[in-house]
């Protein structure tokens, strides 16, 4: 102990947030939900934060259990832990923060099936101690949230002309030039194209990311 913030731990935490080991752009996890919730900025932020919380805590739980889990049913065990955790959190929210739970209800199913959770549990929490796993979970969750927010920002701005529901582009001087919101941005495929642009940008800045 005493090394809670050792260099290695800092790396575990920070590389997924940056572009070197980002869960979406490098590990290519969680693409499915990156399509579903990024038409607007607000749900993207909510989703990013909830995935961060759930990834961190399921990582910790699995990390504690990692030496007892039978190898052949480890995926099932991971799934049960994640599903139980998400259900409990949503029940508690329903009782004590009803408005938040109404907003989140759409995402509960998406969180359980999010590949980032399973990917991090399988790749990290099964081999590492709880504290490192917690950092890894928070780091990957935030890295995921970052991409979601970038994608949602462009989709909402160009698709609906708003940011967080506030009007940005629907005012008169812009409208008079003949500018029309691009409805295509609201369709799921555009999320893929924006994610691809982010990957393009990251790879041209960091040569290490390119395949030989």
């Amino acid at each position: 102990m005493g090394q809670l913030f050792s260099k290695k731990n800092k790396e575990v935490f920070s590389t997924p947030i940056g572009s070197m080991n980002n869960p979406v752009t490098v590990q290519v996890l969680g693409i499915c939900s990156a399509l579903a919730v990024t038409a607007k900025l607000e749900p993207a932020i909510v989703m990013g934060l909830s995935v961060t919380v759930i990834t961190a805590f399921s990582n910790v739980v699995i990390s504690f259990l990692r030496k007892t889990i039978p190898n052949r049913i480890r995926i099932i065990v991971q799934l049960v832990v994640v599903a139980a955790l998400v259900t409990i959190v949503s029940e508690i929210l329903k009782a004590f923060a009803y408005d938040v739970s109404v907003q989140l209800s759409v995402y509960v199913g998406l969180i359980i099936t999010n590949c980032i959770l399973m990917g991090r549990l399988e790749a990290f929490a099964m081999q590492n101690a709880p504290w490192e796993s917690f950092l890894d979970g928070v780091g990957n969750g935030l890295g995921y949230a970052k991409i979601l927010i970038i994608v949602a920002f462009f989709r909402e701005l160009l698709g609906s002309g708003t940011i967080l529901g506030f009007n940005i582009l629907n005012y008169n001087p812009i409208k008079e030039t003949g500018y029309v919101n691009n409805g295509l941005m609201l369709m799921p495929p555009m999320a893929l194209i924006i994610v691809a642009c982010i990957i393009w940008y990251d790879r041209s800045r960091h040569r290490d990311l390119q395949e030989k």
Partner: peptide, 17 residues
Amino acid sequence: LDTNSNVYTIFYASVMV
């Protein structure tokens, strides 16, 4: 404990559920 034995696996799954 042999965590890969059938008995352990079944026992583990039941307790977990």
